[in-house]
Amino acid sequence: MKPHEFKLTEDGIRAVLPPLEADIMEHMWKVRVATAGQVYEYMKKKHPEIRRSTVSILMNRLCEKGLLERTVDRGRGGMRYVYSVTTTREEFEENVVKSILDALMNNFREATYAYLSKMKK
């Protein structure tokens, strides 16, 4: 996933993902595979007012962004969608840094070089 915007005022992955999506991803990187129902149970503890629909929409949005993958699982209790992470957190962070640095180099090449060389010292 290539971030389209970077929020300077937010911490961690919230800088590139909306807060609820970031919460879901934090959890998904821990568990790696989960159903929307399981993620809903986790999210409810943090956001008691959240609804199943919200979690389902956000998880499918994360699929569209390429961070999650949806597959049909036939297990106990019948057929259901199971979501799994497509990248590790480290790979995701690497991608974010690469995208931002590429954008900076394309738009402010000299200033970026100057700043990076200062940082090295």
């Binding site: 159903t35 609804r51 199943r52 629909s53 389902s56 049909v72 057929m79 259901r80 969608y81």
Partner: peptide
Amino acid sequence: SLGLFEVL
């Protein structure tokens, strides 16, 4: 649809 089982 399977989506129905996620929201209801």
